[in-house]
Design a protein around this nucleic acid. Sequence first.
DNA 1: ATAGGGCTACAACATAGGTTAATCGGCCCG
DNA 2: CGGGCCGATTAACCTATGTTGTAGCCCTAT
Lengths: 274, 274
Amino acid sequence: MTRAPASRAIEHTPLWLKLSSYLVLSDEEKSYLSDLERTIVREPPRTDLLQQGERYRDVRIMRDGWAIRHKALPDGRRQVVNFVLPGDLIGMYCTLFESADHSVTTLTAVEVASFPPERIGELFRSFPRLAAALAWSGAREEAIVAERLLSLGRRTALERTAHLIVELLRRLSIVNMAADGHFVLPVTQEILADALGLSIVHINRTLRRLRDSGLIELNGQRITVNDVRQLASVGQFDELYLHLIRAPRRLERAFSGAHHHNGARPDGEDRPKA
Amino acid sequence: MTRAPASRAIEHTPLWLKLSSYLVLSDEEKSYLSDLERTIVREPPRTDLLQQGERYRDVRIMRDGWAIRHKALPDGRRQVVNFVLPGDLIGMYCTLFESADHSVTTLTAVEVASFPPERIGELFRSFPRLAAALAWSGAREEAIVAERLLSLGRRTALERTAHLIVELLRRLSIVNMAADGHFVLPVTQEILADALGLSIVHINRTLRRLRDSGLIELNGQRITVNDVRQLASVGQFDELYLHLIRAPRRLERAFSGAHHHNGARPDGEDRPKA
DNA sequence: ATAGGGCTACAACATAGGTTAATCGGCCCG
DNA sequence: CGGGCCGATTAACCTATGTTGTAGCCCTAT
């Protein structure tokens, strides 16, 4: 069961929360963003929002609930690439591709906003700062995948698992879905296994070790992290890759001054010399 | 030793080659792109172009040579996230971050173009189609990392290795660096091991198996793939994720409508080119 | 030419994690 | 109330891959 967020102001939308930790959005940008989130769809758990191999349809913004992005081999082996949390985009740049190379499947009931891919062109043409912010969000997602690659390649099962738990805790706090070291993890052990490149049995063993050592507690889907510091240290967790810190000043400067909406021209400054 | 590309027209620049397989660039876009590549630097092998933890400096465009993008754990374990080939960008969106979460190190002598991060703002403001194309390129890179994640999580050592070889072959052909199933792989087995999440010894065993089965040949750094189809099948390689196929028509349309001031004219749109 | 460093190669052994299979508890449904 | 299914849990066993150690080759520096 997910929280039920009726219509809410754009200021409380998870995407806005995430982006605003990166740059200050103007009113026009805010209202355009909120317009992108106008069409809202609800889907039950275990629904495919996107299927590997299919041509793209709409771009989605996750507003509430959990999903996984995963890829499968022809023989059925499967890898969960990332968890899709509120504020994350689904198929953003992928719309620029011929067809999807991954699937996205809901874990809980979700609420997603949906807009046609044509609007991406519009977005890039008319709201360059917003476009850059979304590019930033995409780059951040890539950084998360790269960190998971490091996990699968070079961390042990115990380290990987600890690392993932701390990562989720951090990411969930950004969108106010975790407090006090505990959160709901709407996930079977099979999915954890597929995310960490382990077998179900071994994930089970590993969780047990974490519980036995008192680092975490599990009650149903509620997970409690008793000692974040220590868990982070077990997982060699360094939050640098989540890029929670604001972009350096020079970029704010690069973008300041020139918000233009539909068709406007960039006011003079800094014109490219071709 | 790398090929020595003197000054060459933008049309022969690897980045242009890569982007033009995606959309048709206008003359203005071409010349802006070429302006971005104006400042060129050469670096010897084993040079860090970027170091994990450091504040960002310039954005780089790889024009010639090989590099690796890698991440390290405090105890020295290392994962190669991706290979940086001509036409790839270094630290593009990362400039939007506080500091680097990965290192980039050259494998060969390289030639890179370099421009200050401020120009990203300029690019987004004035050349939205180009910005979208670069976003596409970034998304494609993420797709590659995700596919490698699938490899490390769910493919055996043999499959992973075969998969990587086929991937490199495909990527190198786009920039005309592979022909007839053979190319130069300027890489030690240690680096391969770090890319595939294996030990050096095991990569050695695995390459031996591939050689024994006649699928590949190795002479020094030259690798020859005797039977691409079969190697691809061993690695369960499906090139979908490389997104070599052009974006669907609707997107060209999205970008062709309201052009910007110095923006592109959709000259003779859509020359087919897969 | 000699010594040393970097890399490939392989053998012998060790182990993290996979596989198979059985049990158990909860939950839905008739 | 009883079956049936799904997921968690555990035990016993197995194998892919890691570790350690040694040797040889090919550079380059002296």
